[in-house]
């Protein structure tokens, strides 16, 4: 798969010393799974003491990307990771599907182009809500989106 790094927000990428404290894999095989992924994201964000705004950002991004995975990718899986980089806790979420892939990543990320339902804000919107955002896609092979949100002090 050809990696397409589309930049990060909120500072440098996590250093190599980042420790993985926990890992949860959730299937996205039906519409109801979107809610389960969203709930898992919310409960972990709250458990790590993210404030209400960060929790809403994480939960909403999870909801958008899980829906993309289901609606556009035909389903797949979400992997939620609990991270610690020595000073901060973070939550990483990766959404994988084996769908048709995204033909024009820049177009999709520009937002406002709905190919099915919603406003087409899923990708562009969730990118604005998180600190790190990386997307890999290949025609006919699928799409993987990874986001990270770090807890602020």
């Amino acid at each position: 798969m050809r990696p397409v790094e589309v930049g990060h927000r909120g500072g440098e990428r996590a250093p190599r010393s980042t420790r993985l404290l926990g890992r949860h894999e959730l299937p996205i095989a039906c519409e109801a799974d979107i809610v389960l992924v969203r709930r898992k994201a919310r409960s972990l964000a709250q458990a790590y003491g993210f404030d209400a705004f960060a929790t809403a950002a994480i939960t909403t991004a999870a909801s958008e990307l899980a829906r993309n995975c289901w609606v556009h990718g035909g389903g797949g899986a979400a992997v939620v990771e609990e991270l610690y980089d020595g000073t901060r806790h973070g939550l990483a979420m990766e959404f994988r599907d084996t769908g048709p892939g995204i033909g024009d990543v820049e177009w999709a990320l520009a937002g406002g182009h709905s190919t099915t339902r919603s406003l087409g804000l899923g990708l562009s919107g969730s990118r604005r809500l998180v600190d790190e955002f990386a997307l890999e896609t290949a025609r006919g092979e699928g799409t993987t989106v990874r986001i990270v949100k770090w807890k602020r002090f």
């Binding site: 705004f53 809403a56 950002a57 909403t60 937002g111 406003l119 562009s124 919107g125 604005r128 809500l129």
Partner: peptide, 15 residues
């Protein structure tokens, strides 16, 4: 609408 919901929607660019 809760504050965090309003903030999230505006940050996402929801019209």
């Amino acid at each position: 609408m809760r504050p965090e919901v309003a903030a999230t929607l505006v940050r996402m660019g929801f019209p």
